[in-house]
Design a protein around this nucleic acid. Structure first.
Length: 176
DNA sequence: TGCGCGATTCTC
DNA sequence: AGAATCGCGCAT
């Protein structure tokens, strides 16, 4: 079953955790399909989250984070890597989940390269029209198969936010 | 209008 | 350890 946008209408850490074990599916322009199990995610939630792009308010770049749940937020990092995020929570509340890894790719930049994703899909919704969606596994991986960790590369945020365990990793899946 | 830097990755 | 590489966000 394909996850509906309503699946994303809840706090980002909750969605980040719930996405583990689900399958990311990509329909390429030439019709080919790529699919891989999501193994690593990170949550960014709210204005107060100092690690979030939205912490200093709405800007042209982060505007998609303020959109309705299930939107695709793609931004360029370090001038060369696209980061894939899925918007969570209701409209006007900025929150998103960064996809950091799947069963056959490690790292958010390599993930988007593998799935042929760039700014073209920024702002679109998950689904057939965009050619990107999530297929549900049906069963939830038990908490024993999930570990949490601080988010990567967010030392610029205050210690309270930099140390939050909002990175979620599925154990026992090949990562890379 | 200019400048520092980043939710990274690859090579040396 | 350092480079690659560029748009964004804030300061001027």
């Amino acid at each position: 079953m394909i996850l509906p946008c309503s699946f994303f209408n809840r706090p980002a850490p909750e969605v980040a955790r719930a996405l583990l074990g689900q399958t990311l599916v990509r329909r390429l322009p030439d019709g080919r399909r790529l699919a891989a199990v999501i193994t690593e995610t990170e949550a960014y939630d709210g204005f107060e989250d100092e690690a979030s792009h939205a912490h200093r308010g709405r800007t042209p770049r982060n505007g998609v984070m303020f959109g309705p749940p299930g939107r695709i937020y793609l931004y360029l990092c370090y001038g060369m890597h696209w980061m894939l995020n899925l918007v969570t929570r209701e409209a006007d509340y900025p929150a998103a989940v960064l996809l950091r890894g799947t069963s056959d790719v490690s790292g958010p930049g390599r993930l988007t390269r593998h799935f042929d994703l760039d700014g073209q899909l920024n702002g679109q919704s998950l689904g057939s029209a965009s050619g990107l969606w999530i297929r549900s596994a049906g069963s939830d991986p038990g908490s024993r198969r999930i570990r949490t960790a601080p988010r990567v590369g967010v030392d610029y945020a205050g210690p309270q936010w930099a140390s939050k365990p909002w990175r979620f990793i599925l154990k026992g899946k090949r990562n890379g």
